[in-house]
Write a protein that binds this DNA or RNA. Sequence first.
DNA 1: GATTTTTTTACGGAAAACCGTAAACGGAAT
DNA 2: ATTCCGTTTACGGTTTTCCGTAAAAAAATC
Lengths: 222, 222
Amino acid sequence: MFKKVLIAEDLDSISQTIIHTLEELSITNIQQVKYCDDAYIKIKKAQTENEPFDLLITDLSFKQDHRKNKLINGEELIAAVKSFQPSIKTIVFSIEDKSFKIKSLFNNLEINAYVIKGRNSIEELKKAINSIYNNETGILLPKTTNTLTEKSIIEIEPYDISLLTLLSKGLMVNEIATEFKNSTIIPNSNSSIEKRINKLKIYFKANNNVHLIAMAKDMGLI
Amino acid sequence: MFKKVLIAEDLDSISQTIIHTLEELSITNIQQVKYCDDAYIKIKKAQTENEPFDLLITDLSFKQDHRKNKLINGEELIAAVKSFQPSIKTIVFSIEDKSFKIKSLFNNLEINAYVIKGRNSIEELKKAINSIYNNETGILLPKTTNTLTEKSIIEIEPYDISLLTLLSKGLMVNEIATEFKNSTIIPNSNSSIEKRINKLKIYFKANNNVHLIAMAKDMGLI
DNA sequence: GATTTTTTTACGGAAAACCGTAAACGGAAT
DNA sequence: ATTCCGTTTACGGTTTTCCGTAAAAAAATC
């Protein structure tokens, strides 16, 4: 079994349970931090001392408070850690259940497992740890019905996200066009942007821009 | 100390910690449920058997799954429970930190304490339990700066919420007007609705309707 | 009950979204 | 080079939002 595990989780009400679970799996060296920055430092230090962590279990969203942190969420943490220790195993333990977001974690950060916090997540977490230790990479997806189908996930590109984000910030089509031109993002004409927005509206069955943004917010797209 | 306590919390990773905390406070009869409906049934049953619960500790948001539930969140649960057992003490334990929402819980549901899930929430939860047992009603607010000021909270009325909700569903001003007329909500003229939306936009410094709805979503208003 | 004040409604012009059509552009294939 | 095809851009007309002003109605004050 894993020898040295780090837990990055801000809510004490959750981290305590994870620790308890790891103890049940006879893991002896369990460390825990409440901030991503602390996690980064600990993993870095452990590696330089030739006693690296085997496994990182991290949440995605961390509350912001008085402390100024460089790494503000689990995604940034994983990316930062893998930059110097790509071999580390990672489990994301989060309440986020939007499959397109989970997918992106496997694709972009190459995490080893994703466990959704829920009514029986402890068991799933145990399974995930065992699977990874036996070198199986598995996606633990929820059984809940998702509004987005497998197919539809693929078609939402970063371009759409930027577009929706700018829209949600109150920019007009005109302003978005100049914004895209400044960032050399194409297409960037008023017409194309209008067309793309329209496509998204048809796609999500939204009545108008307001509706579209409300739905995007609900789905966690932006 | 309290004799009989019920925990309503869907995430097992959190409920385990709460149970552990209550045990430390020498509370012997601790029961736990993962659905609001189950909480309601348990409390109801306990009362009819003349062994009522002293305290309810509940989350606000519960994940939805295959089960069809009548009560879908903590607010509904508390309202339902207080309808037949108004004397029960209630603590809300949630990650929600928008002060206007917390305020409304104290005002409308007369909860006894609100503990925000965070990096030291276990300690706060203990304090809250002790305080309530000693008949002190206290608001445990976070130290984080809130975008909404105390004054601004008051002025957001249910009317505004309905308005924002309908907007976010993609209805046009015209349609909202007829909707309001059907529900005999006043004011319900196009002009008045436009004016009210404009007021909200000035208030929240939103550029347009899209921006306004995005902000309302972010703040948890809708 | 008359007057003042506030709220609600009505209206109108300018700006932006909405939506279809057509032209211009840029690769890929031949 | 030319054709083909998909993408991007341009344009124009309609609808809705946006925003100010004024009238009408309701509420408050005297």
